[in-house]
């Protein structure tokens, strides 16, 4: 008898080439594909079964841009009507003049608004088939970064830095009196009243990144922040 259905337990780790399901009962979505009667994984990640859809959530690798993500990037280039922002993936994000927070007059010098080396908090609005990424700085919390510093963590560790419902990042905010903006691409903006606070926040975030696999990390970071105060 041919076995039909899911062959691998849900929430387990799959690797490329693993046969996830047999038969035509399930449909492949993100991170897997159909080959004859099989649904096969093409990513290293976590298996997720939603009704009849099979999805593999990637757990490693570089940042994959998604529509709606808040990202932090550096202005790398500009042309007549747009800035090109490095957001840490293979393609630069395009920020059109009309999507900028600031009003830009016709024929104005774009460098007066966002200059080379400036950092912006932006949101991805559109990704075309050819992987051009359109971003905007219009919206709550989106702007050019002034003051503070930007640090990088591995993109796959971003959910850990944010924590459940933002518990981790809000605890670090409270513990250090800094404003912290976490970009989904692994860039984090820290802005505090004095450099020591920023340094402490940086240390705490890097600690989260390095020890992301440890149980009870929230309590550990809490103790760390209290000790350093």
């Amino acid at each position: 008898m041919i076995k039909v259905g899911i062959l691998i337990k849900e929430k387990s780790i799959v690797v490329p080439g693993d046969i996830i399901a047999e038969g035509m009962d399930y449909l492949p979505s993100l991170g897997c594909f159909r080959e004859g009667k099989h649904v096969v994984s093409e990513r290293l990640g976590l298996l997720n079964v939603d009704n009849r859809f099979i999805k593999v959530i990637p757990l490693t690798g570089s940042y994959v841009p998604k529509v709606g993500d808040t990202v932090i990037g550096e202005v790398k280039d500009m042309s007549f009507g747009a800035w090109f922002i490095d957001i840490g993936c293979a393609y630069d994000g395009t920020l059109m003049v009309r999507d900028a927070t600031e009003f830009v007059e016709k024929d104005a010098d774009l460098a007066q608004v966002y200059n080379f080396g400036d950092f912006v908090v932006a949101k991805i609005v559109k990704i075309t088939r050819h992987s051009s990424i359109h971003i905007t700085t219009k919206g709550p919390g989106l702007r050019k970064i002034q003051g503070g510093k930007v640090i990088s963590v591995t993109p796959s560790k971003v959910p850990r830095v944010i924590g459940k419902q933002g518990s981790m990042v809000s605890m670090i905010k409270d513990g250090t009196n800094c404003t912290i903006v976490v970009g989904q691409n692994g860039k984090i903006w820290i802005n505090g009243k004095n450099p020591d606070d920023e340094l402490l926040a940086t240390e705490a975030i890097l600690k989260v990144e390095n020890e992301s696999h440890i149980d009870g990390l929230t309590d550990k970071i809490k103790a760390f922040l209290e000790k350093k105060k």
Binding site: P16, E42, R43, G61
Partner: peptide, 10 residues
Amino acid sequence: AHAGIPMKDM
């Protein structure tokens, strides 16, 4: 595979 590049197989 670790870099998250889509692969049909190992």
